[in-house]
Amino acid sequence: MQRSVLVLVIMSVIMLAFLPWIASDVMLQFAINTLLLATLAQSWNILGGFAGYVSFGNSVFYGLGTYGTAIAMAQFGLPFWVGLMLGALLAVICALIVGLPILRLRGPYFAIATLGLSGVMGAIVSNMDIAGANIGLILPLTRADPMFYELSLGLLVVTTVCVAWLSMSRFGMALIAIREDEDAAGTMGVNTTRYKVAALVLASLFTSIAGGIHAYWITFVDPASAFDPTLNVRMVIMAVFGGSGTVFGPVIGSFLLSTIYELLAFWISTAAALLFGVVIVLAVLFMPKGIADLALAKEPGWRYFLRNVREHRL
């Protein structure tokens, strides 16, 4: 990584850390949401971007993080950080149990199998009294948006540092080899199963902590929103829009898309979702490799877009 990029990133983080002192309440809420979504996209990037395994099951880890925190705080009166740890533990155990069988599947089969996961987990939680069954749980109210903001920012920084390390490490190289050709990677000595499961566990860890922070911030959890499959779709879109398999792509993708959506909702409230869809379609057509690839492209703007259209035979 170039030193200038590193300096720029550190400066941005320091500036972002001071946001609660200048931003309005609405602005701060938008920022917390954006940071949490960016963390989710970045976590998805670990397995989806580096190893090429497109998961729609990450919202399960988010839900488990949500419920771990909610159960610890609402049912047992335990402190917030214990709840976060409980949620992370549940998610990691789930990743280990589910990962071993499901990561044997490849391509679309893996994606389909993961799609079922959040439905299953949502149904299980809806029938557990300790989790408030299908009514949900109410967490103790804390009005401390600046704290939630700093926590979310910290989590995103930690997740991104982890991905940056990954991109330069032996572990990351194994994941990339698996993405490029899993059979060839195996004959070259890569223990594919171990690295895939490790990537899923790492993703589940960060995803669940984001879920826990969100639960305490919103102070209410219910099965439908905790195990919402469209949340997972958003992770995929944001990571791919920014550039999956890159260090900063998913973060930039989330920031931009969240902002675009928020602006659209502000100007033309009802048609926002429609226009948002158009933005996604155009992005996939003209820059399928994401913003990260666009930023590194050698040719000027419109030529880059035309080349993408040509190369993908559209």
Binding site: M173, A174, I176, A177
Partner: peptide, 12 residues
């Protein structure tokens, strides 16, 4: 280079 690096990283 990276193609060959994979072999060196995970080989014998």
């Amino acid at each position: 280079l990276d193609n060959v690096v994979v072999g060196a990283l995970f080989g014998t």
